[in-house]
């Protein structure tokens, strides 16, 4: 089949992922992103080009090109686990929709053989791309980081109008389960007000019932060094569990959504 030979650029495939969508999942991480979120824990995902990163003193090549066929072969290996857990394939990144043909081919290929599909995306891309994948998508885990355009630009490099607009369209399409995810980043969006504003926005989207609050962590810090980049967040202390619980309760109260900490 034609689509099986479509090439894409990925930097990892992670099996037994249990925090990124329902059940036990295999995540394919696509390379390349248009945002430059300061807290990004996968900085090696941002460039589309193949890079070298030092990992524990050894140079590691980040990024490889792979066909849809080869990718789906790996995804297929954990089918028994998807069946028992309600899991499946998740595309992540980077921003997976920046390689629209590859993403579409993977999602439709998986659906054709009965594998549940999900993507993690910030949705900041022309809606036609999103529209094309929706028929093949069970879960859209969509990032909403901030409701203020300027603040969004300051911390991620882009404003948020397109993303918010697309969120409404995706919800209106009724073609997929839309779940809103919010990375909770101190100094950026960890105020009660901002989290509640996002929650209210999410609750206004037709069909949206769930929201995930993902606490900031520093696990990606070493990668910045490995890439020869500066980590500008090293003074930021991850939110405590107590803070997260307070935010969750506030968001739940403000929006009526089913909120959870972590994915």
């Amino acid at each position: 089949m034609e689509y099986e030979n479509t090439l894409g650029r990925i930097f990892d495939i992670q099996r037994f992922s249990i925090h990124d969508g329902p059940g036990i999942r295999t995540i394919v991480f696509l390379k390349g992103c248009i945002l430059r979120c300061r807290w990004c824990c996968n900085p090696e995902s941002q460039e589309l080009g193949i890079q070298t990163m030092r990992v524990q003193g050894i140079n590691k090549v980040i990024g490889r090109d792979i066909t849809v066929k080869d990718t789906l072969e790996i995804v297929e290996k954990d089918r028994p686990y998807y069946r028992r857990s309600g899991g499946g394939l998740t595309l992540s990144g980077g921003e997976c929709l920046l390689q629209p043909e590859f993403a579409l081919a993977l999602l439709s290929g998986a659906k054709q053989v009965g594998i549940n599909t999900a993507i993690e995306s910030m949705g900041g891309i022309q809606y036609e791309v999103i529209e094309s994948i929706l028929p093949h998508l069970d879960y859209f885990l969509m990032d909403i980081k901030h409701t203020n355009a300027e603040k969004h630009r300051e911390f991620t490099g882009k404003t948020n109008e397109l993303m918010l607009e697309n969120a409404k369209k995706i919800a209106a399409s009724g073609q997929t389960n839309l779940i809103i995810r919010v990375p909770v980043i101190p100094t950026f969006n960890n105020s009660r007000d901002e989290i509640c504003t996002i929650a209210e926005f999410a609750a206004a989207l037709p069909g949206v019932k769930r929201m995930h609050l993902l606490p900031y962590h520093r696990l990606g810090q070493d990668k910045y060094e490995g890439l020869g980049r500066e980590y500008t967040m090293d003074h930021i202390i991850p939110p405590t569990n107590e803070e997260m619980v307070l935010l969750k309760e506030a968001a739940q109260k403000a929006s009526g959504l089913d909120c959870q900490i972590g994915g």
């Binding site: 037994f16 249990i18 059940g23 036990i24 028994p80 686990y81 069946r83 028992r84 857990s85 899991g87």
Partner: peptide
């Protein structure tokens, strides 16, 4: 952390069952 919460338990059971399915 892999077994935290009800979700963690469910996924753990799914893992055992899937190994046994095979």
């Amino acid at each position: 952390s892999a077994l935290s919460g009800r979700e963690g338990l469910e996924k753990f059971i799914a893992l055992v069952r899937s190994f046994f399915d095979q």
